[in-house]
């Protein structure tokens, strides 16, 4: 089984539109939307939300006013400044470490499990999909990403599917690291802008840090040919193959408004032809075809 994770560092370079386009092309595949913070893939793929499961990701401290003697021990031990002078805990500042719970001499702090979000198993017109919704202002996005990737893998094994397409989150932090562990390869969607390049380099460094092969595609490459050349040079220097370039094409937005992939909307558009080429290039890339330890298939 292989898993391709689509990342970019910078947001808005076209990760989700390109993932959806790949979904149109790929066979025997499970989709996984690992951008649990601001998931968008479902807007194109229209999943049926066959199964909804609550995500319990942590705990939250709550002071029981009846037992509290206002001794101030919790204020003293909380490193996150979450206990207010009124002996209430600010749920936004609370990290859920439970230190106040364990150290309260009156045992006056409850520690209920919090529901941090939901995750879903769905069917789409392209195949099964695992996706999630992290609750607003919740923590533990990395845990939720790890969880849904694990579920996507289980689903793939159960249905005998040999590819997982994962739409990753922006950035290089907790949820991104959670989205790449044990992946076969990463596709970095870059764009020829100063920020697109800067952020691609950071994701490239991350992939190297975790030893996962990365490749690059350049979206909107004709926006700034000079910067496009710069991306090619940087990618080459970092041994990241450039698998293709996509023109600045409004087809992506038009298709998105119709809740379609670019192939469904117009399979002959410039972007469609370029994405098809990229997909073929990825499938024939050695790093994407390296033999997998057969026992790992069961994990």
């Amino acid at each position: 089984m292989r898993e391709l994770v689509i990342l970019s560092g910078k947001g808005g370079t076209g990760k989700t539109s390109i993932t959806a386009a790949f979904a149109s092309l790929a066979q025997n595949m499970v989709l996984c939307d690992a951008d649990v913070d601001a998931a968008d893939l479902h807007l194109i793929l229209k999943p049926d939300f066959k199964k909804t499961i609550e995500f319990k990701g942590g705990h939250e401290a709550v002071i029981n006013k009846e037992l509290c003697t206002q001794c101030g021990r919790c204020i003293e031990v909380c490193r996150f400044g979450a206990v207010k002078d009124s002996f209430e805990i600010d749920p936004i500042d609370c990290e859920g470490c439970g230190v106040c719970v364990d150290l309260c001499p009156e045992k006056a702090i409850d520690f209920p499990e919090t529901i941090c979000g939901q995750w879903y198993i769905s069917n789409t017109r392209f195949g099964p999909m695992v996706h999630a919704r992290l609750g607003i202002a919740q923590e533990n996005s990395g845990k939720l990403v790890a969880l849904i990737r694990g579920e996507a893998k289980k689903l793939a094994i159960k249905n005998n599917l040999d590819l997982i397409l994962t739409d990753g989150p922006p950035g290089i932090g907790c949820p991104v690291i959670a989205s790449i562990g044990q992946a076969t390869a990463i596709l970095i969607v870059s764009e020829p802008t100063v920020s697109g390049i800067h952020d691609m380099e950071r994701v490239g460094q991350l992939s190297k840090h975790f030893n996962i092969p990365a490749m690059v595609c350049i979206n909107k490459y004709d926006l700034n040919p000079k910067q496009t050349e710069k991306i090619m040079a940087i990618a080459q220097k970092a041994s990241m193959p450039v698998v293709g370039r996509i023109s600045f094409d409004q087809t992506f937005t038009e298709a998105m408004i119709q809740a379609q992939t670019i192939f469904e909307y117009n399979h002959q558009s410039q972007a469609s032809m370029e994405v098809r080429q990229i997909w073929d290039n990825i499938l024939s890339l050695p790093s994407f075809n390296a033999p997998v330890n057969p026992i790992l298939k069961h994990l």
Binding site: G11, D37, A38, I92, I136, Q138, S141, P170, G173
Partner: peptide
């Protein structure tokens, strides 16, 4: 601020 809606964003908006 960073994109998203989770802890880093809250830290930048709070």
């Amino acid at each position: 601020a960073p994109p998203g809606t989770s802890c880093p964003v809250i830290a930048a908006m709070n």
